[in-house]
Design a protein around this nucleic acid. Structure first.
Length: 561
RNA sequence: GGCCCCAUCGUCUAGUCUGGUCCAGGACAUCACCCUUUCAAGGUGAAGACACGGGUUCGAAUCCCGUUGGGGUCACCA
């Protein structure tokens, strides 16, 4: 970086009121990439000024999700990820990074504003304001705060506030139009009177978002504010505040929003919707999970706006065999997507690499993103999230891996979501299965599902009726005959590895003048109960001699009668 | 509803700023065929868009205006 330009400082500032949403992840990714590209600093700040909704647990979850995506912050809460990489810290001494710990800082600047007459105490109750709002609405007027508090003389306002009377602090918004320049959208102007005297300190003494953001961005030296477009209308407030406080005005870049496939804004509600629709389709009348009360369920079914807890929805989905749409970063992790693929895909939502980077490049890694990311190439139009494309990318990434790497990644996934799977399989069979499954699996979860046949006890295999008919009974039971002849051949094999198994099957097929399909399919049904499994030699090898012989015997006995 | 933002294949997008090289390129999805030991994957090919209407210009996807459509936002939430 040249020495005459100030370093780039970006930040991601989530409020810890829930899980990290995939849209939030993209915001973080862009802010991170921009800082990386310019050799700058990426700060993580926790916006927990809403005491009622913020939680420590959410904060931990968000840090974990970011670390999983490998979006690591230079400054912010200290965190050691599972991979052992440390993040956070405060080399410049601009912390703490939780707003709830910065109250003194906010109050100091707030007092300056009040003393300068740019902000004032207001004593109306929330109920009072609510009534005024309703009255405006009923009269068909746009509601704006009427500055009623200013009718109380200044000295009296200060006296009452000092005496401890409950109050808020409002910013006295300057009269003129407010214009800001956005790096993505260009100039945006709000006419005079569009912004009213908004609250900057709540009754509970905490600053509102608007105030805290402005103070923190200044104190932390943030040069580029990168955030979602839903904040665009807030930005004039921030600019007005920055000017009143004598702060630098950072550059702004408002990102287009991410929508669900149906065109609505992607939100946790999508899960409620999917679950509710499923309940309606199935005609469910009582709560399908134990962590939901009957009343709660009934109210939720009736009211499309009502939301259940993530855990409740998960329990419901589990009991109904339902797949909820992925919304949170954690959802994608659980669904078996690779973090680098998720980053690759979401970076394409609203951004594309420049031509200098290469022609029509879509698949790239984090280093590429950091090398080429620029605000000027962020689009203005909202994007729909296309799970199919993400899935295709994930599939391609898995396809490009070595068997060993896939096994490692799958093992890590299993440790979190299916810990019994590698334990019961053992290292050798796990590796063998991983190699067999890798070319035909799109997600790590899918691989786990495909491993089911190897996990079941031999006598628990359920033979699919259609498969039995088609591959075993048809043509006077030619499939069963194959099984009977194959059993001793397989049993006699000196080593039970894919290669010799393959040779035996091929030799047998040649002798009988049969196609591989006539042999592999009956065997597959006998061993797995169905017609879908990894290549037959791998399927046989993974199960091992004992299980193979046992399963064939049982199949012949039960189907052959 | 007020205000603000946006508008290229079904979807994500390249191209728009610096009009002509664009009868618009890529990717995902779709369809067809090939391959095949199931399921996938893979290969080849096809179909598919400049929202509409006015300007400006020799020439507009690209510039201007309007219409329509979509979205965001209107809290003592962030």
């Amino acid at each position: 970086m040249s020495s005459n330009t100030s370093p780039v400082i970006t930040r991601f500032a989530p409020s810890p009121t829930g899980h990290l949403h995939i849209g939030g992840a993209r915001t973080a990714l862009f802010a991170w990439a921009y800082a990386r590209r310019h050799g700058g600093v990426f700060v993580l700040r926790i916006e927990d000024t809403d005491q009622a909704r913020s939680s420590e647990e959410s904060t931990r979850g968000i840090l974990q999700d970011l670390a999983w995506l490998d979006i690591l912050w230079d400054e912010g809460p200290e965190f050691a990820s599972e991979g052992g990489k440390a993040s956070g810290g405060d080399p410049r001494g601009v912390g703490p990074f939780s707003q709830s710990q910065r109250l003194d800082l906010y109050n100091a600047h707030m007092e300056r504003l009040i003393d300068a007459g740019r902000a004032y105490h207001a004593f109306e109750s929330p109920e009072e304001l609510d009534e005024k709002r309703k009255a405006s609405l009923a009269a068909g007027r746009q509601h704006r705060y009427d500055r009623a508090a200013l009718e109380v003389p200044e000295q009296e306002r200060k006296r009452r506030a000092a005496a401890g009377e409950p109050h808020v602090v409002r910013f006295r918004v300057p009269d003129g139009a407010i214009t800001l320049t956005d790096e993505v959208l260009g100039e945006v102007t709000l006419a005079p009177g569009e912004v009213d005297d908004f609250i900057i300190r709540k009754r509970d003494g905490f600053p509102t978002y608007h105030f805290a953001v402005v103070v923190d961005d200044e104190l932390m030296g943030v040069t580029h504010v990168i955030r979602g477009q839903e904040h665009l209308n807030n930005t004039p407030r921030h600019v007005a505040l920055q000017e009143a406080l004598g702060f630098r005005v950072p550059k702004f870049a408002h990102l287009p929003l991410i929508f669900s496939a149906d065109g609505s804004k992607m939100s946790k509600r999508d899960k409620d919707k999917a679950a509710r629709d499923a309940c309606k389709r199935a005609g469910v009348e009582g709560p399908p999970a134990t962590n939901i009360s009957a009343d709660e369920f009934a109210a939720w079914m009736k009211d499309n706006k009502r939301q259940l807890q993530t855990e409740q929805l998960a329990a419901m989905a589990e009991s109904m065999g339902l797949e909820l749409p992925e919304i949170d970063v954690e959802d994608f992790r659980a669904a078996g997507y690779l973090p680098d693929v998720v980053c690759n895909y979401i970076s394409l939502l609203g951004w594309s690499p420049p031509a200098e980077a290469g022609k029509d490049i879509e698949k790239f890694d984090m280093a590429f993103l950091c090398k080429w990311f620029e605000l000027g190439r962020i689009g203005k139009t909202n994007a729909r999230f296309d799970r199919n494309k993400l899935l295709a990318f994930n599939n391609d990434a898995i396809g490009a891996m070595s068997d060993e790497e896939f096994a490692d990644r799958w093992r890590e996934w299993c440790a979190r979501y299916e810990p019994q799977l590698p334990e019961r399989l053992g290292a050798d069979r796990f590796a063998m299965l991983a190699a067999a499954l890798r070319p035909r699996t799109k997600t790590l979860r899918e691989a786990a599902a495909g491993a089911g046949f190897a996990l079941l006890p031999d006598d628990a295999i359920e033979f699919d009726a259609k498969a039995v008919e088609k591959t075993l009974k048809k043509n006077d039971g030619e499939g069963l005959a194959v099984l009977r002849e194959l059993k001793p051949l397989l049993e006699a094999l000196p080593t039970f590895d894919p290669a010799p198994i393959h040779t035996v099957l091929e030799t047998y097929a040649a002798e009988k003048g049969l196609g591989m399909g006539k042999i592999a399919q009956p065997l597959r049904v006998a061993l797995t109960g169905g017609t879908v499994s990894p290549p037959i030699d791998a399927t046989v090898a993974v199960l091992g001699r004992e299980a193979v012989v046992g399963r064939i015997e049982r199949c012949v006995r039960e189907i052959g009668g």
